[in-house]
Design a protein around this nucleic acid. Structure first.
Lengths: 140, 140
DNA sequence: ACCGGGTTAGACAAGTTGTCTATACTTCGG
DNA sequence: CCGAAGTATAGACAACTTGTCTAACCCGGT
């Protein structure tokens, strides 16, 4: 059982990025894209990485006529959520609100970005705050 | 030279947390707090961790009459910034704006939190380039 | 001189990470 | 049928990280 907090390594992330782009891909496709000049072992390397992604339940393989097809099991958004939650866990006592405040305060936002955020906040305020059913809130 | 992106491990973070609380602390103090029932080697463990923190330029030692005094060289805020930047780097093409949007959208914010954020945004819009004296302008 | 605290250098096991080797299995052309 | 080429899988491997631990060292006080 892979720890729920299982982290994604650089190489694994590179695979995921391609899967997010392609929806589904074969090993050959991934190898060609990620290790274009890769030697003989690139294939097995990608295989191992996909294997680990599967173990972490971040990827899935699918049978087809031909070779296996691979898909991501988490969206970029979901992964983002996990990372942020982890950061909050370690540095903000588990709460994400301080992260938000920190970001708003610390980043020099362009007026356009500020406006967009205010707009977004306003929209969310107008939706029923008690029923948070419709939208996928935060994933997990 | 340690990579600027040098990561902080769990145990190192525990040390930093104490240093953030205490401003400065001796080894003994840290050992007693972090390994209260720790065996004979706890001292050396903490030493090694502090050594690594120093190598990463995240901590500093200071001579005093008695034993060394240790201090953090980064604030929690700064560390938060680095982590967030890294996340943005890996998942949002380097830009933090999507992280912000994601957070605002994904977290169930209480009305109070929303109000506070809107307030904050308004403030920032009104005094753009001025480092106002009242608030800490720490981030990044 | 001895003791006990502080101080330091390094050994170490366990785990992670990316790559690579070896070996199957499948399938298609000749 | 044989073998070549692509596909599939298991496991070895070196390099690195991480937290702990051992063995010393130095030095002032009694």
């Amino acid at each position: 059982m892979p720890k729920p907090t299982a982290d994604v390594t650089e190489a694994e992330l590179a695979i995921l990025q391609r899967l997010w782009v392609h929806e589904a891909a074969s090993m050959r496709q991934l190898v060609d894209e990620l290790y274009p000049s890769g030697g003989a072992s690139a294939y097995a390397t990608v295989q191992k990485l996909l294997e680990r992604l599967e173990a972490k339940e971040l990827g899935r393989r699918e049978r087809t006529d031909g070779p296996w097809q691979f898909r991501a099991r988490v969206s970029r958004d979901e992964l983002l959520s996990r990372r942020l939650r982890r950061v909050a866990e370690q540095l903000c006592d588990g709460s994400l609100a301080p992260v938000l405040t920190h970001l708003v305060r610390g980043q020099r936002l362009t007026p356009a970005e500020r406006a967009e955020l205010r707009q977004l906040l306003t929209e969310l305020s107008q939706e029923p705050p008690t029923r948070s059913s419709g939208r996928r809130a935060g994933g997990a």
